[in-house]
Amino acid sequence: MNEATPSPSRHWKILFAAWLFVSAASLGSLFFSEVMELPPCSLCWVQRVFMFPLAIILLIGLFPFDGSVVKYALPLSLGGLAVAFYHTLLQVGLIPETAAPCRQGVSCTEAQFELFGFFSIPMLSLIVFSIVSTLLMALKRSSSR
């Protein structure tokens, strides 16, 4: 039993790292919308739908450690990755704006915020979903061995 050993197992650490990334990103997203009052566009909302539950189910998977959490978490993470990828392409202009599904309300293509003058919010989302998907896939591979 992994959780019985005094020092946390490698698997636990991987899952914990994934949870930290997701939680930091979720809080960051809430900071943008609730503190900075930047209204989330519709594609941002779809990414939140994938992001927020991850922060909860990964935590449940940590105590006690349950590797099968990957089965539920990975589809969420990959779904978020796909939307974030699309959103990023849209924002940097690789997909023409006319193809954007959101024309009313908040624009999905206009960058409201740029970290260090470069990283837009969808890019940050893409980075986090990439890291978390990678960690979860690593966990899946090493536990199936």
């Binding site: 930290l20 939680s23 930091a24 900071f31 503190v35 900075m36 105590f63």
Partner: peptide, 27 residues
């Protein structure tokens, strides 16, 4: 260090950063 402590520490730090950032931003 027990896993519970690590998680509490990590989660607590995240929340702390959030609270401090909010306060700084509003000021």
């Amino acid at each position: 260090m027990k896993t519970q402590h690590i998680a509490l520490l990590g989660g607590g730090l995240l929340v702390l950063v959030f609270v401090i950032a909010t306060s700084l931003y509003n000021d």
